[in-house]
Amino acid sequence: MEFKIDTKPTYTVITPETGDLSVNLAEEIRQKVKEATETDSHNFVIDLTNIENMDMASGDHLLDLHNEVYNNGRSLVFTSMKESIMNTMKKGQYHLSLNLAPTMIEAIDIISMEVLERDLLGEA
């Protein structure tokens, strides 16, 4: 699977180029997040613009990734999902636990707010 990686000062955007959101792709995303963490990235936006469908089984893997990232004091947002993916997220109730943003701008806003919140709570 090909990915586009775009590293910004406060977050990294990981965009799978094509395919369906399967368990294998969810694991590849997890690996990309791990690799980016090792190069000092802390917050992640997963851009699903190019993904057409989602397997229900991949939702658990995304939830595990979400929990892993947040347990390490980082942020993770999934964005730009097609309606079919959002319907699968809702069917599996993953939308209740994952950070989902309809647009990249909103995903970046979520990251920015969470970074600010961690900074403020860390100083208290």
Rank of each mutant, 00 (worst) to 15 (best):
T88V: 15
V45C: 07
D20I: 02
E68P: 01
D47V: 03
E114R: 11
E117C: 07
D119I: 14
Q93S: 11
L48P: 02
M54S: 09
M81R: 00
E38K: 12
M1A: 15
H61M: 11
H42W: 09
M1K: 14
V45N: 03
S80V: 06
A26E: 00
T37P: 02
I108H: 00
H42F: 12
D40Y: 05
K91L: 15
S84L: 07
D20R: 04
F44N: 00
D119H: 13
F78I: 05
V77M: 09
S75W: 04
K8M: 11
L63P: 02
M104K: 10
L120D: 07
L63E: 08
N50V: 11
T79M: 10
S97V: 07
L65P: 01
T79A: 15
I51G: 02
N99E: 14
E68W: 12
S22Y: 07
T103I: 04
V77N: 04
T79C: 15
K32N: 09
T12K: 11
V23I: 12
L65H: 01
L21K: 00
I85W: 00
N50T: 09
L76I: 15
R74Y: 05
G59H: 00
I85R: 00
L65D: 01
I110L: 14
T18Q: 11
E27C: 08
A36P: 02
D40K: 10
M1C: 13
E123F: 14
N67Q: 12
M56K: 09
N71L: 06
S80Y: 02
H42C: 05
M81I: 10
M56H: 10
N43A: 03
I51E: 00
M86C: 07
I46D: 00
V23M: 05
V69P: 01
L63W: 07
L120F: 14
V69Y: 04
N43G: 03
D20A: 08
I14C: 05
M86D: 09
L120W: 09
A107K: 06
T7H: 10
L121D: 10
V33Y: 02
Q31C: 04
D47Y: 03
T15I: 04
H95I: 08
V23K: 04
S58C: 11
I85E: 01
E38C: 07
T7A: 13
A57Y: 07
E35T: 11
